[in-house]
Design a protein around this nucleic acid. Structure first.
Lengths: 188, 188
DNA sequence: TCAAACAAACCGTCTGGTCGGTACAGAAAG
DNA sequence: CTTTCTGTACCGACCAGACGGTTTGTTTGA
């Protein structure tokens, strides 16, 4: 794969991500993606032969970015649970660190795609299942799962903008989650 | 509005709800709704002149059911936070009580509709904002919000079937959330 | 010069919505 | 009592636009 080709592919994934985040799933049409990326529709379908292929690539890139960030957090010494909390928090509280460009809110948008691409959905589900399985082996599985759910719920709430608390409260919530995650990791 | 008319309208809302829950948003077409309800497409559009009108009516009915259930829980003596937890839990642990037929998972599906009907979305968002505002006035706003987020995240996780814990763990999680909600309500 | 990397017109399907018509229950008219 | 009229509820063929994908032609770079 030449460099030129790869650049275009990234542009297309960027465009698709941008659209799905700022205008929602129903606006994610091939024409719109091509237009946003500054490429013709033919050009798009040259690289991604179907809409499904485009979406799959988009999700796959996200997954990879997320895994890398999670791994780097663990290498910094954080335990699995705390690393998970910080994974969610990272780009929100430290946007300067977003060199590893990942916006966790994307996940929500992508989740809605699952209804279209069932096959890939199942593969991803399986990955997530094995990941979350470790959360049931900690010193306090109940609390661990509450932390996980709280983060996902917070993400969703933020994404849809419903009942969003003021910034201080949000920070306090995250701080408490980190604190608890830290304790759990220490006891595990 | 005659009785006959109302029956048909309810049938249509039931059909739409059924489709969106069991087959996802992208299957929610007018033809499919009409077919499921045993009504012609013309008949559907006679009662709900547009797809948007149908969706709005669907969400409005859900909202009403939910408000009624929440109010009834508070009348049983539960505080606002605990009532909220039990609201989520109700139909899951006590399906026999589902006379007040409400499946909270619907919310998730409906949320995805928001990307289609922005105007109504904003109205609902406003309602939710005022509702959740009280959660920031409890004895422990941070914990209250964590409880709320955890429930929403749990809902989402269940809906998409990702990383779902075994039943015992799920029950333990809900039990702990109820316990904490109870404490918060008592101190408030 | 040749293949990769695009562009753009075009096609078929799906879907929201329109429109002319039908069935029928009751009111009004004779 | 019969006929005519009227409004509600509903049907189903049809239309127009949107959208995913194909085809064919053109440019670009090694």
């Amino acid at each position: 794969m030449s460099n030129r080709s790869n650049v275009t592919k990234q542009k297309l994934l960027d465009a698709a991500t941008d659209i799905i985040m700022n205008h929602g799933v129903h606006q994610l049409t091939l024409d719109e993606v091509a237009k946003t990326a500054g490429v013709s529709k033919g050009g798009l379908l040259y690289h991604y032969p179907s809409k499904e292929a485009l979406m799959t690539a988009m999700v796959e890139r996200l997954q990879q970015e997320q895994n890398e960030l999670y791994a780097s957090l663990q290498q910094e010494g954080y335990g699995p649970v705390e690393a998970f909390v910080r994974l969610f928090d990272e780009t929100k509280l430290h946007p300067e660190r977003a060199a590893i460009q990942i916006d966790v809110e994307k996940m929500i948008a992508f989740l809605t795609l699952f209804e279209v691409d069932q096959e890939y959905a199942n593969r991803w589900k399986h990955d997530l299942d094995t990941f979350f399985a470790q959360f049931q082996q900690t010193a306090d599985p109940v609390e661990t799962m509450i932390i996980r759910y709280a983060l996902e719920g917070m993400m969703m709430s933020e994404h849809f903008g419903v009942g969003v608390p003021p910034a201080e409260l949000k920070q306090a919530i995250i701080a408490r989650l980190i604190e608890r995650a830290h304790d759990i990791d220490r006891e595990s």
